[in-house]
Amino acid sequence: MILSTAVAIAEARMGKPGEKYYSGRSRAIMERAYIAFKSSTWMIVISGFVEPVLFLLSFGYGLKDLVGDITVAGQPVGYVAFIAPALLATSAMNGAIYDSTMNVYFKLKHDRLYHGMLATSLGPMDVALGEISWALLRGLSYSIGFMAIVAPLGLIPSMWGILAIPAAVLIAFGFASFGMAVTSYMKSFQQLEIVNVVLLPMFLFSGSFYPLDVFPEWLQTVIRIFPLAHAIDLVRGLTLGNISWALAGHAMYFVVMIVIGLFFTTRRLNALFMR
């Protein structure tokens, strides 16, 4: 009997931890995403890049004279430079949420794509890691693209701004792992609507377009329970060069979010992929 390569590879992981879920080849999932990107999903991928740019054009240039300068940490900041980091953070969130909720759910229920993948020697962990990695790769290219547009326009006054790129990836990771955990509890497509119900108010109230201090104290406290406000403060702090320990706190928020998200996703992998 000739042992096919497939067997050899799967068996190479024998006895290693997590062999039940993981065969160590999430790269195959990323390769699949890349092929699909080349042939059919590139429109969506590009559209995700265009969105923050449109917002920047419309809000930034349409409203800048109406609003005037905004005071951040005692310094006046031009309105466009004020919203640019918020748009970067928000688009990192949107991309990650789409990838980990709608996209996963459709592949799971509508196309039954994961059923096919899991009939091979891949494990559920390979699939989850592969999908998240691809989402992060996308997030990374979005933020590089966005920075390449806004930096030459003088909208990133501080050198620290370069760190906004890894920060955006961290934010995307947080939302993606959390989103996947949430998706694993979804029973029907209708329940996914709940995600949008949370996203819209978060988008509107997290301080993208003006500082949070117009709101009463209690509302500010409520807003800071949710992740987007931290994401915006983190990226804005970096691009405007307002470096303080608070930034580390915001980053920690996302580290915790990643840990919690991955913990539940891993726990629910079987429920998610193998019912």
Partner: peptide, 25 residues
């Protein structure tokens, strides 16, 4: 719910929130 929540949220956030800066300016 969408038909009610949507206007309320937008009017408060953009209309009143951003509006407070614009009206001041």
């Amino acid at each position: 719910s969408i038909a009610i929540a949507n206007p309320v949220l937008y009017l408060i956030s953009i209309g009143l929130g951003l509006g407070s800066y614009i009206d001041q300016n």
